[in-house]
């Protein structure tokens, strides 16, 4: 579905964000991309739809080359890639419906979008998608009136009405609380399997990544340093991606290594104690 060959990005400041990244994501696979801040995760997914122009390398989507497309062809190509953002990136002063319909902008002529007279199929599609993400009662609200989790659902709906082949998801849970984060990740997973969508998910939270994603790619200093199943993320691998740290507590405890994890968690509770006291003192 998506193939990346030798992707390199050097910013004008001279920073090398990506260095010869090769990656392949088959149809229907939801892939997690982890790595420390500044490793190039955001740059990587923005190079795929060329919101950031790659310096070298090639990107293919379903056999067609994305890099090297002209303006109009690039716009047509972007319709096939739905993007979901860290801080939701909704147009705050537009209604939920307008935000969702903006996912159709690549398909409709300017005058239709200007007068908000989208084709009936598009409107039906927007309603259906809003119902799927659980926001059918909020159609006419302004985006800035919604909670964080609701906003990200609008963001997901906007990406879905594009009828994409792949979702590019940049830190979908970074501004959400732990429970909402799980709900959003679960929703993304369900939707991808319902529609057979491929996705690349940039994610900071290693535990969350392991919980919802099958394949994990680790990025460090713009290079792929790990590519494997989520279960293979062991402390030594995390050290390789992020650097030296006590990783035992960040890793999700499976049944297999339940004992060790439980012991670690106990240890973790003790460590969390002073932290809680400190926070209590602050209030």
């Amino acid at each position: 579905m998506l193939r990346i060959e030798g992707l390199t990005k050097r910013y004008r400041t001279g920073d090398l964000a990506l260095e010869g990244v090769d990656l392949e994501v088959p149809a229907g696979q939801v892939m997690g991309l982890i790595g420390p801040s500044g490793a190039g995760k955001s740059t990587l997914i923005r190079c795929i739809n060329r919101l950031v122009e790659p310096s070298a390398g090639r990107v293919f989507l379903g056999g067609a080359e994305v890099t090297g497309l002209g303006r109009a062809q690039l716009r047509a190509m972007r319709r096939r890639m739905g993007m979901i953002f860290q801080e939701f990136a909704l147009v705050e002063r537009l209604t939920v419906m307008e935000n969702v319909l903006s996912g159709r902008l690549g398909y409709v002529p300017f005058w239709r979008s200007l007068s908000r007279r989208f084709p009936p199929e598009d409107v039906t599609k927007a309603y259906r998608t809003l119902d799927r993400v659980g926001l059918i009662d909020h159609v006419d609200k302004r985006a800035d009136a919604l909670s964080g989790g609701q906003r990200q659902r609008v963001g997901i709906a906007r990406a879905l009405v594009q009828d994409p082949d792949i979702l590019l998801i940049d830190e979908p849970t970074a501004s959400l609380d732990p429970k909402t984060s799980r709900q959003i990740m679960r929703l993304i997973g369900e939707i991808c399997s319902e529609r057979g969508l491929a996705a690349i998910v940039n994610i900071h939270d290693v535990g969350l990544a392991q919980m919802f994603l099958q394949r994990i790619v680790g990025l460090r200093h713009g290079k792929v340093v790990f590519d494997g199943p989520a279960e293979a993320l062991k402390p030594d691998v995390l050290t390789q991606i992020y650097g030296e740290e006590d990783w035992t507590r960040s890793i999700r405890d499976d049944e297999e290594d339940g004992d060790a994890a439980r012991a670690d968690r106990k240890h973790g509770d003790h460590a969390a104690e002073p932290e809680r006291e400190r926070l209590a003192g602050l209030t």
Binding site: F85, S102, G106, L114
Partner: peptide, 25 residues
Amino acid sequence: EAQAEAIRATGGSWLQLVNYGIQPQ
């Protein structure tokens, strides 16, 4: 910029970017 970037990412044209991503702001 994030709001404008999101409109660019949908494949909208420059005029649509101005109308959806800039004008409301």
